[in-house]
């Protein structure tokens, strides 16, 4: 297994080294932590509710990025070379202007992104993060045994496919470009985007197959 896991304890320090929460995030965290402390809500129940209702995973801008990369080889090359610019060209920006890196799945190599419970997750591009994604066990297990974690998500890869694990850093956020499903020749970018799930852009899932989508 190739390892691209970065340690977050960088030996260089700069102004953006610490985390930051927006005023609205502070308000939500403040209220939730008080409610939890006083026993009015159970954090696990909140997580479960979020998971239940977050089926509309935000803007899903990343799905359009992936679909365009599948349909347009020039765009794909640009995305792999300079994802920040290629994604911005579609009008999608990160909250903090973070750098994005696109990593492409191939028959030889599968990419899996892990994160911590921080603000690294580029939700304007990927949509809302899955609740489990923030859990420490997922992260550490994904680093130690990515193939086993993928199997739990129902993703079984050929033994010959290498798995690379990527961890967000202060500087880098990752977008996985999954392999284009077979049987989608000639599809429009819009139709292709419907196949791109959030989990496929994290690497914990594969895109939908054509037969899994109801085409109108």
């Amino acid at each position: 297994m190739t390892h691209a896991h970065h340690d977050h304890d960088h030996d260089h320090h700069h102004d953006h080294d610490h985390s930051e929460l927006s005023p609205i995030e502070l308000r939500v965290r403040a209220l939730e932590s008080i409610l939890v402390e006083k026993g009015y809500v159970d954090p696990a129940a909140i997580d479960a509710l979020v998971e239940t209702y977050e089926t509309k995973v935000g803007p899903r801008n990343g799905a359009r990025v992936v679909a365009k990369a599948w349909a347009d080889s020039d765009y794909r090359a640009w995305l792999l070379r300079d994802a920040t610019a290629a994604i911005a060209s579609l009008g999608f920006m990160g909250r903090q202007g973070e750098h994005m890196v696109a990593v492409e799945n191939t028959p030889e190599e599968h990419n899996l992104v892990v994160c911590t419970l921080c603000s690294c997750y580029p939700w304007p591009v990927l949509g809302l993060p899955p609740v489990w994604y923030k859990s420490a066990p997922y992260r550490s297990r994904a680093v130690i045994d990515p193939r086993g974690v993928l199997a739990e998500f129902g993703v079984t890869l050929p033994a010959t496919t290498r798995i690379r694990v990527w961890d967000s850093t202060a500087e880098m956020r990752y977008l996985v470009v999954p392999m284009r499903p077979e049987g989608t020749e000639g599809w429009s970018e819009e139709a292709l985007a419907d196949l791109v799930t959030r989990d496929s852009m994290i690497g914990t899932g594969l895109p939908l197959r054509p037969e899994q989508v109801v085409r109108s």
Binding site: R27, C120, K134
Partner: peptide, 22 residues
């Protein structure tokens, strides 16, 4: 309570290295 707790979260975030859980 809310205002005090918001300030606590703000201090906590600023004391947390990027990439670590806040």
């Amino acid at each position: 309570e809310l205002v005090e707790r918001q300030a606590a979260w703000d201090r906590a975030a600023r004391a947390t290295p990027h990439g670590r859980p806040i």
